[in-house]
Simulated scan of single mutants.
Amino acid sequence: MPDLVRPTAVASLPAGQVEYRLERRGDTVVVVFHGGHVRASLALGEDVFAAADCTLLAPSRPGYGRTPLSTGSSVEGHTDVVRALCADLGITRVAAVVGVSGGGPTAATMAARHADLVERLILVSAVGWLPYPDRRTRLGAHVVFATGTEAVTWAGIHALTRLAPDVCLRLMMSSLSTRPVGEVIAALRAEDRDLLLSLFAQMRSGRGFLNDLRPTPDATARIDQPTLVIATRTDGGVPFAHAQSLASTIRNAQLVESRAHTHLVWLGPDWLAIAERIRLFLDTDPTAAVGPARSGT
């Protein structure tokens, strides 16, 4: 299986300890806020930024990895911590802040709260400010990802990746697509299966996922930066309505509709075209409005 794990460091800031991964390349800096059950050490969906020679900063959000929940546990507080981390690392401009899945509200709030630092916003399969998740899922999450059960839940999933990989894929992918899980599994390439199993073998929730479910103030009305919202209608993890809402309420947003079958749009058949769209977006003048939201790659 491919190894998604990368080395991380820990910064001790006035607000507390924060884990991060910094991959220095060119002058263009991208900050990536990963989604639920993922921490800074897992490099997922970042190839487009490496190919564009971007320096990448990925912090672990509160409760994930080695970032304790006490370090800016609110979305607003964590964006202040990340700004301080950027200053500590000598980063004075961020070409784009990227929010993936559950990292969407943090990225959007970072753009709104620190507009003098952040030039663009990219939201990928992102949670917005519509009600999320549904009541049944929320109640289930408080059972399987509670402090006393989270480690047991993930130990079972990690064991399945080794002992019964097909069972693991069906179990996990059933919640990531609205399509029949048999169709989703059948459409996976061998390299996709390997990547997914490698991802599922490393995921943990810590105290971060339940913290993600706390309400946070809607920042969309305060975002003026050019924004790309990327999502698929068959996302079973975050309903497509979140992308539509984000694209319609952020002033300078474009909605890019993926043809991926699942929440993980990097595995979609049109990802190369979307990646090119992202690279072109990073090259555009951030002071120019991108026009009304629209679909298509």
Rank of each mutant, 00 (worst) to 15 (best):
L188W: 05
L176H: 11
C168S: 15
A187P: 15
L171N: 15
F200K: 07
I185W: 10
S198D: 11
V181E: 07
M173Y: 12
F200Y: 11
T178R: 12
S174E: 04
L196T: 11
I185R: 02
E183S: 15
G182H: 11
G182S: 07
S174M: 12
S177H: 15
L171E: 02
F200S: 12
L171P: 08
A190S: 06
V184T: 08
P165C: 04
R170Q: 03
R193Q: 10
S175M: 15
V167F: 06
D166Q: 05
L176I: 00
S177W: 09
S177A: 14
L197W: 10
A190V: 09
G182A: 15
S175Q: 10
L195K: 08
L176P: 01
L176R: 12
L176W: 11
A186L: 15
R170W: 00
S198I: 09
F200I: 02
D192W: 13
I185Q: 10
V167K: 09
A201V: 06
V167P: 09
P165D: 04
L199V: 15
L176F: 07
L163Y: 03
L176A: 09
L199R: 14
L169I: 08
L163V: 05
A190T: 12
S198A: 14
S177I: 10
A201H: 14
L195R: 04
A201F: 01
T178G: 12
G182Y: 02
V184M: 00
V181G: 07
A187D: 05
R193S: 05
R189S: 14
L195C: 06
V184A: 00
L199P: 00
D194G: 01
P180D: 05
M173C: 02
V181Y: 03
M172Q: 08
I185M: 02
V167R: 04
R193F: 03
L199M: 06
V167Q: 05
D194V: 01
L197I: 00
S198G: 15
S175I: 09
E183I: 06
L171A: 03
L196W: 12
M173T: 09
A187L: 02
R179K: 08
L176D: 04
L188R: 05
V184C: 01
E191S: 10
V184N: 00
S177F: 06
M173A: 09
P180E: 13
A190D: 04
A186G: 09
T178S: 07
I185Y: 09
V167E: 02
S177K: 03
P180N: 04
M172L: 13
S198E: 10
V167Y: 09
F200D: 14
I185L: 02
L196F: 09
R170G: 01
R189W: 00
R193K: 12
